[in-house]
């Protein structure tokens, strides 16, 4: 599975180009990098829902941890919300007013935060989750998550960090992948995860979500 990395980089590069190029056309209308005051207020706005130190929050919906997340991943997802490739009742409104420079500044900020995991996942299935995470389920065509997300779950560029992620959020994503991501006709990076999400059973999803939720 380790050998999958170079291939994946190629896939990612090809798809990311397709994603980034249309965005260049609508360059920052303000023409200036985000003003400091604007950035501080916007960060506060994000943290209202994503937790005061970016650790995530359980509202009516689980709101994901952004702390320590890969900036490339955050940026790619904000673009996906704006272009409606990823549909979400809250995030389109949030994202579509962000200028490209603001988007980059926000994404970079969260990388530097390192609060404790949110916690609260059941502990019973963590060992099963660890096994799936590190070895995959060959008989069910599920690759080891660690091959892409890293042994410690820290992610890499467009591959997200999973370490410390809210249990409920990871479950909601893996069980609702096809309904939320990869909408419309453009191919994007979400296609890489689609078969894996599809091949996991509910209890396997819960186990792996519990495992990653407690990684520091």
């Amino acid at each position: 599975m380790v050998a999958a990395r170079p291939n994946l980089r190629l896939i990612l590069q090809a798809t990311m180009l397709a994603v980034i190029f249309p965005a260049v056309g609508c360059a920052d209308e303000m023409g200036t990098p985000a003003r400091q005051g604007g950035l501080v207020a916007k960060l506060e706005y994000c943290k209202t829902c994503h937790g005061l130190s970016g650790q995530g929050y359980l509202g009516y919906f689980p709101m994901p941890r952004l702390a320590g997340q890969q900036p490339e991943y955050i940026e790619a997802q904000l673009r996906a919300f704006i272009e409606r490739r990823r549909t979400n009742p809250i995030m389109f409104n949030v994202a579509h007013v962000l200028s490209p420079s603001m988007l980059t500044a926000l994404a970079t900020h969260f990388r530097g935060l390192n609060p404790k995991p949110f916690g609260g996942a059941p502990r019973g299935s963590i060992a099963t989750g660890k096994k799936i995470y590190e070895e995959g389920l060959p008989e069910a065509n599920v690759p080891a998550c660690s091959a892409c997300h890293g042994m410690e779950g820290k992610g890499h560029h467009e591959i997200p960090r999973l370490a410390g992620q809210l249990y409920a959020y990871t479950i909601s994503q893996l069980t609702g992948w096809k309904k939320e991501r990869g909408q419309g006709s453009a191919v994007d990076t979400s296609a890489i995860m689609a078969p894996t999400a599809h091949n996991l059973t509910r209890s396997q999803v819960e186990a792996v979500a519990a495992y990653v939720s407690q990684l520091q």
Partner: peptide, 22 residues
Amino acid sequence: DGIPEANIVSCYACHGPNAEGV
């Protein structure tokens, strides 16, 4: 929807679609 331009968050995200709480 909130008013994202004014940094006003959507209440729905936490209080639910029908303001029923959780």
